Amino acid sequence: MNIIILGYGKMGKIISEIAEERGHTIVAKITSDNRAQLDNLDGSSVDVAIEFSQPESAVDNLSWAINQGIPVVCGTTGWLEHKHEVEQLTLSKGGAFFYASNFSIGVNIFFKVNRYLAKLMDEQHDYAIRMEEIHHTEKKDAPSGTAITLAEDIINKIDRAKRWNLDTESVENGHNILISAKRIDKVPGTHTVTYSSETDDIEIKHTAHSRKGFALGAVLVSEWIKNRKGILSMDDFLSF
């Protein structure tokens, strides 16, 4: 396949390496410094766009790909207040848009376990819910997109969980999910969900050892999305 990388930071570079190892061609590597190259790029020569940029660039990058008729796979977080607009553009153009807060296969199994555990804990009112996420110091948004996905999945399953809050914000009446977001050098990503009572704690945890799992997942999805249409997610990819 011919792939364009929109956002060529650390993740973009690992994605590019894995894609080329799997026999794909990277036709362009776009950053904020060379974005003008898009004006001269023939979209018909591109099979898929992989978007891992910054929150402030994501919407423009995604809109460009969708308007070019290029299926787009996005892992950028911190821009989701505009996600509905991108989805509507995708549907109006008959395109394909795939978003995941995390492309790791292990993390998406973790998401599934989190939803199942939350369903079991719905009636267990003695347990307070808290989360911790740890990432590298270069990560700009907090909490992480993965942590937000975990929290929103819990909120959808547990009636008493009304909203999530960062630990710098107030928590009222125990109805919130408290998220601690830490930034430590060279940590790819660790997420922990804890249900805590006076008698015991129940905890599930995912620890990434490198960014390679995230990057490989993005490339596998890019291979899968070709010739598909619509708004797609990891649940579709993994047949959950």
Rank of each mutant, 00 (worst) to 15 (best):
N2C: 06
I4D: 11
G9Y: 00
K10G: 01
I14F: 08
I18C: 10
E21F: 04
T25K: 13
V27T: 11
A28E: 15
K29C: 04
T31I: 05
D33P: 02
N34G: 15
R35P: 02
A36P: 05
Q37K: 13
Q37R: 08
Q37P: 13
L38R: 09
D39T: 09
N40I: 02
N40D: 12
L41K: 11
D42W: 01
I50C: 10
E51Q: 14
S57E: 07
S57Y: 08
S57V: 01
V59G: 04
D60Q: 14
D60H: 07
S63L: 04
S63M: 03
I66D: 05
I66W: 01
Q68M: 09
G69I: 12
P71R: 14
V72L: 02
V73M: 06
G75D: 02
T76I: 00
W79M: 02
L80E: 13
K83Q: 08
V86T: 04
E87Q: 09
Q88H: 11
L91A: 07
S92E: 13
G95L: 07
G95E: 11
A96V: 07
F97V: 02
F98A: 06
Y99A: 03
A100M: 06
N102A: 02
F103I: 07
S104K: 08
I105G: 03
G106C: 08
F110R: 01
N114V: 12
R115Q: 07
R115T: 07
A118L: 02
A118W: 02
A118C: 15
L120C: 09
M121R: 03
D122C: 15
D122Q: 14
E123G: 13
Q124V: 11
R130M: 06
M131K: 04
E132V: 08
E133K: 05
I134S: 02
H135C: 15
A142I: 05
P143W: 00
S144C: 08
S144P: 00
G145P: 01
A147K: 05
A147F: 05
T149K: 09
E152N: 13
I154K: 00
N156S: 12
D159G: 11
A161Q: 14
K162T: 03
T168P: 08
S170I: 10
V171R: 14
I177T: 07
I177P: 01
L178K: 15
I179P: 05
S180A: 11
S180M: 04
D185W: 03
V187H: 00
V187M: 00
H191M: 01
Y195C: 05
E198S: 09
E198H: 08
D200S: 13
D201A: 14
E203Q: 13
I204E: 06
H206T: 08
H206A: 08
H206C: 06
H206V: 15
T207C: 14
H209S: 12
H209P: 01
S210P: 02
K212V: 04
G213T: 03
F214N: 15
A215S: 15
A215P: 10
A215E: 02
G217F: 04
A218N: 11
A218S: 09
V219L: 06
L220D: 07
S222T: 04
K226C: 13
N227F: 04
N227R: 04
G230N: 08
G230H: 12
M234V: 05
D236T: 12
F237Y: 11
L238S: 10
F240K: 04
